[in-house]
């Protein structure tokens, strides 16, 4: 069971790296921190592979580790080290050098997402990037479903002001 857990976790980490990174970028509103967060998540996941039940949703398990590391460890450390939160404008916009025509819009949207409060950013990521239902998002965020809906509504309203 343990060897199987380790194998599944190792394979699953590679398969989910991009989504873990995206989650980390949105949560931390910073690409630099995202790298640290993802690496810390991978290490923790491998350390705790025995706790993963094969056949259950690996990505959710990985996301919960990522959130735990962010909220309980990395986030506070960034504030203590004085780096605070990177200017949201730079953090979430797409790398300028690689921006192509079709991504200009995406870049604007992501910049706007970066300006949202953290709780709204995460709700938007779960529902509109990861395809969670409101109920699943509420469970993940540990918030009532009504709160999730308010956050989504507030975020969508703010984003609608783009154009």
């Amino acid at each position: 069971m343990s060897e199987e857990s380790r194998r599944e976790v190792r394979a699953g980490l590679e398969a989910h790296l991009a989504r873990l990174w995206r989650y980390a970028v949105v949560l931390a509103a910073s690409r630099d921190t995202a790298d640290d967060l993802v690496q810390a998540t991978c290490l923790r996941a491998l350390e705790r592979a025995d706790q993963y039940q094969p056949g259950t949703r690996l990505d959710r398990w990985l996301f919960s580790i990522l959130r735990s590391i962010w909220f309980n460890e990395l986030r506070a450390r960034r504030v203590r080290e004085g780096s605070g939160l990177v200017a949201a404008d730079e953090a979430l916009s797409i790398d300028g050098a690689r921006t192509i025509e079709t991504n200009v819009l995406a870049s604007e949207v992501l910049t706007a997402v970066g300006r949202l409060p953290e709780a709204q950013r995460e709700a938007v990521l779960l529902v509109y990037a990861e395809g969670y239902s409101y109920a699943e998002a509420a469970e993940t965020l540990g918030a009532p479903i009504g709160t999730v809906m308010s956050r989504l509504h507030a975020a969508r309203t703010a984003l609608a002001k783009l154009r």
């Binding site: 991009a18 989504r19 990174w21 991978c42 995406a106």
Partner: peptide
Amino acid sequence: RLASAFDALLDEAPVERL
């Protein structure tokens, strides 16, 4: 547009490095 933007962000992931 939101969903597309998140797709585009996914494409940015430095998967090989990670």
